[in-house]
Design a binder for these strands. Structure first.
Lengths: 206, 206
DNA sequence: GAATTAAATGAACGTATGTTTTATTAATGA
DNA sequence: TCATTAATAAAACATACGTTCATTTAATTC
């Protein structure tokens, strides 16, 4: 046998990406084989190499796609106007919604960094740093205008990101607890964490 | 060749555990081979099987050791007297100090759970759950006595643990920032996060 | 100093891995 | 209808894997 009836390159590539994200999230990148992945897609292992030159290129493609989608999604959701408080709220809610909806891809992007070659790793870390910078700037603006009380904006940004990303470790949406519920609670915790003062509309210093 | 001069079972086992934690933390459990590990220890692969029946048994031994050490250490550090605020402070500071000091073992215990068989996984999760329960109880007591303002103690416990464990991802002690500095800052954030009120010495309800 | 036990070696086993090559079939456009 | 190209299968390659086995040497005991 060779080419199968109804086969389509675009669909096959999408199916490979889908299956890869699912399998890698569950078993880990090193633990899965190209044959396993191919079987999940319903194809022979050799067929994968028409779409991704190597196993690592596949992993990198998944991570890069995830990070770019995150940046684009936040770019679309980020409020054009509004103070640091509104922007922080938007950031937290968007982050949780986005990552809960894509927890498999998030797991892959967070846990499999060590399987990347140095140039690929650098590229992903650059995308990640750009995203984290968004939060850091929001925090700094809030601290400067006196709305937030923050010791160190870099350290606080890391703490918040760890906290809100951690949602995907334990949370599964059901009838009792929706993503919105969780996002609301985490937003409240975040606001307390940054010492938000509702009455501070005027900068205190300079 | 066979038994080497000066060889000692206890020392070899300790060396295996050490090297395994380091290698697995860096490259991942699935990524390292028994031959690689043996080479790091300075021994042949077959020698490892005198101490651990299988590769997975080795992983499990590392994780179990780490979790038991954590429980024992917290047990020793936990203040016998004092209110929820003092206990929460002790928990956060101990947690950060312990995990920063053992970040390799922590990485292994947090990232390689999926490589455990179901019974082994269950055992580790049980140990982990017991530890997390400690924090949950502190939070509940604080909420009941009105010292803390908390929506959901379970959810808040997860958020705090994710946040304070996340320290090991970015933090490396140096002259500019010590573990004590970081622990202090994270404690302040935690206290704000749980809405600690310094003036609440009397329960508000009941 | 002989017997025993503990610690490690070196070779081998069967299997699985990522990847390449070659051949074959389905869809596409003239 | 017929060439062309896209998509896949099938088999093979070299290597690496976890693990076992028989053996050998060092330390310990009597």
């Amino acid at each position: 046998m060779a080419r199968t009836a109804g086969s389509d390159g675009e669909k096959t590539e999408a199916a490979i990406r889908d299956a890869a994200v699912r399998l890698i999230a569950r078993h880990g990148y090193e633990a899965i084989s190209m044959r396993q992945l191919a079987a999940e897609v319903g194809v022979q292992a050799a067929a994968l190499y028409r779409y991704f030159p190597t196993k690592e290129d596949l992993l990198f493609a998944l991570m890069e796609g995830h990070m770019r989608a995150l940046a684009a999604s936040w770019n679309a959701a980020c409020p054009a106007s509004g103070g640091p408080e509104a922007r922080l709220a938007a950031f937290v809610e968007h982050h949780i919604r986005f990552h809960v909806a894509r927890r498999h891809a998030t797991h892959v992007s967070n846990m499999e960094l060590r399987s990347l070659s140095k140039p690929n790793l650098t590229a992903i870390l650059k995308l990640r740093a750009a995203y984290e910078k968004e939060l850091r700037q929001i925090l700094r603006e809030g601290a400067d205008s006196g709305v937030f009380t923050i010791d160190d904006s870099g350290l606080t940004a890391m703490a918040i990101i760890q906290m809100i990303t951690g949602v995907i470790v334990w949370f599964r949406p059901d009838e009792k607890l929706s993503v919105e519920d969780v996002a609301k609670t985490y937003l409240a915790m975040t606001m307390r964490l940054v010492g938000r003062r509702e009455d501070a509309h005027v900068p205190e210093h300079a």
